[in-house]
């Protein structure tokens, strides 16, 4: 009886929640965030909703421009985040560069 009551209460809460309807899909929270911070700021759990919003946004008046802005911002953020090596990553790059260089020097010299 207790379990049934709990389930009923939860169902009531779920049914009681009305999803927020945004008039313009390009103005949804996720699209706004993607425009500001790039599309990689969208978490995995938010992806289905984001793709839905993007799909709807394509059909809006300024939809294409909005999506282009998101793409542009994502590329900018990627560039800003990874413009230079951080921490251990340069060590790995030096190891790889030297090993490839040594390999081809030996190969070309015929050893």
């Amino acid at each position: 009886m207790k379990q049934i009551t709990i389930i009923l209460v939860f169902f009531t809460v779920l049914l009681g929640q009305e999803s927020e309807k945004v008039a313009n899909a390009c103005q949804s929270d996720l699209i706004k965030r993607a425009k500001k911070e790039g599309m990689r700021s969208i978490g995995y759990k938010e992806l289905p909703q984001y793709f839905k919003d993007v799909w709807k946004c394509r059909k809006e008046k300024k939809g294409k421009k909005t999506l282009q802005k998101i793409n542009q911002r994502t590329i900018e953020v990627d560039h800003e985040n990874s413009a230079t090596f951080q921490g251990f990553t340069s060590t790995c790059a030096y190891c790889v560069s030297s090993s490839v260089l040594i390999f081809y020097i030996f190969k070309l010299s015929g050893n």
Partner: peptide, 17 residues
């Protein structure tokens, strides 16, 4: 393990080991 950096926008140089 692959480390990388962007010398230019859209262009990435990566090192794999």
């Amino acid at each position: 393990i692959e480390t990388y950096f962007f010398p230019r926008r859209k262009l990435e140089i990566n090192f794999t080991l």
